[in-house]
């Protein structure tokens, strides 16, 4: 795997300029490395061609694991491992298992999804991902091309043709 990325990127002041630039880059068939913004820009995903996230599907299965863990666990404990009669209820007192089953469903789904989010996004405590520009988390919007995928001068010419604020080149650790 390559350890470095040679990036050329444009900085925009406004999300509308960014959206227009991304749209025309896509029309020209240019390979976009990534787009960075200080907040989620709505309408960007379909233009970029990002597929819908599958986090919620994973969440469903994590939740299912929680449901089964709680319900089957309590069933095993109270019917097989150590049956005790509480208040004249049957050993397998399904209605009173419902609250804990529900809570563990939510707990497993939430923890599982959150961990999945950070793992698939390559994030975690102490992770040091490259930041193209410190102002991206403030008020600037960034459209980046990888020089391996796009001809550098063509990318620069393209960025010039949009309502761009600044154009930079940078080599970053991938």
């Amino acid at each position: 795997m390559k350890k470095r990325k040679d990036v050329v990127y444009g900085i925009y002041n406004d999300e509308h300029d960014l959206l227009n630039a991304v749209r025309s880059a896509k029309d020209k068939g240019m390979e976009i490395m990534d787009v960075y913004s200080p907040f989620p820009v709505h309408g960007l995903d379909p233009i970029l061609g990002l597929k819908e996230s599958r986090l919620h599907i994973a969440g469903f299965f994590y939740g299912l694991v929680g449901t089964l863990t709680a319900f089957l666990g309590m069933t095993w404990i109270f019917t097989k491992d150590w049956p005790i009669i509480f208040g004249g209820k049957p050993y397998w007192a399904v209605p009173s298992f419902i609250p804990i089953t529900f809570e563990l469903t939510v707990l497993f789904a939430a923890i599982g999804m959150t961990i999945s989010f950070y793992v698939v996004s390559g994030m975690g405590f102490g992770v040091d991902n490259f930041i193209l520009d410190d102002r991206i988390s403030d008020d600037k919007f960034c459209l980046a091309f990888d020089k391996d995928e796009v001809d550098a001068s063509a990318a620069k010419d393209f960025l010039e043709s949009t309502n761009v604020e600044e154009i930079h080149e940078k080599v970053v650790k991938a």
Binding site: D34, V41, L44, D45, L48, V127, N129
Partner: peptide, 8 residues
Amino acid sequence: LGWTGAAK
């Protein structure tokens, strides 16, 4: 956590 602000 290494947040970059990438679209994805």
